[in-house]
């Protein structure tokens, strides 16, 4: 039986401002290792909100979240930071990179934080990831010298540096043209195949969703299929 990397039990979330309303209702889902899952649904149906909860950045919810079979619901900020650092890779729609560091250093940063390998090894691994993403020649550039597609590839490399068990993306191809979008899909697909990592990607691109292993469809804060 394949190993579950992520599981939710009856997750509910409310927003209170301006009026109380339920953004997420009874979310029950699980993802196995090596699974490529996409999430689709109309704008405003709660996809991003769900992803923030699953990535442990948002802790104001009801219900339970398990990652790697560990219940994270009552963990402290410090413990959750460690989980994010070690087990979760996150790719945003807007490529969030640190302008203070060059591309290579941006990729290395979560690795230095985890400190599982010596600095030289982390650098080597970061270069490897950049090479797979065809970004090795840009390694010493500053992030703001890159195009949108290039930045997104750097963000992916950064998400991969600590060999997370799951990689989440919130519309990572939303800002990319068809060519770049296809490229990102291929990168993701390879990760699943070669490294047996799990992927959970929010997208509004039906083509992209159709090519994944499984699609979760959401409407009004509920999973409808």
């Amino acid at each position: 039986m394949p190993k579950k990397v992520l599981e939710t039990i009856n997750i509910n979330k409310y927003f209170y401002d301006p009026v109380k309303f339920r953004v997420l209702s009874d979310i029950n889902m699980s993802i196995n290792e090596g699974e490529f899952v996409s999430v689709v649904g109309k704008s405003g149906c709660g996809k991003s909100t769900l992803l923030y909860i699953l990535s442990t950045m948002d802790t104001a919810y009801e219900g339970e979240l398990l990652i790697n079979n560990v219940n994270l619901t009552k963990k402290t900020d410090k413990d959750l930071a460690i989980v994010r650092n070690e087990h979760i890779g996150f790719v945003f729609q807007f490529h969030y990179l640190l302008a203070e560091y060059n591309v290579l250093r941006n990729v290395m940063l979560p690795g230095i934080k985890l400190a599982k390998y010596p600095l030289k090894e982390i650098e080597h691994r970061a270069m490897e990831h950049l090479r797979t993403l065809d970004m090795a020649d840009q390694a010493l550039k500053s992030p703001n010298q890159l195009s949108g597609g290039q930045k997104q590839r750097v963000a992916i490399a950064r998400a991969l540096i600590n060999d997370p068990i799951i990689i989440m993306g919130d519309e990572p191809t939303g800002n990319l043209d068809k060519k770049n979008s296809d490229m990102v899909f291929d990168i993701f697909n390879n990760l699943v195949k070669e490294r047996n990592q799990a992927l959970l990607i929010v997208t509004h691109d039906p083509d992209f969703a159709a090519r994944t292993h499984r699609t979760i469809e959401m409407a009004d804060g509920k999973i409808i299929s």
Partner: peptide, 16 residues
């Protein structure tokens, strides 16, 4: 703010 958000998202705690 953005840099702080990235640091937190990639595994830095509030304490860090």
């Amino acid at each position: 703010m953005d840099s702080i958000a990235i640091l937190k998202a990639t595994g830095f705690s509030g304490n860090d």
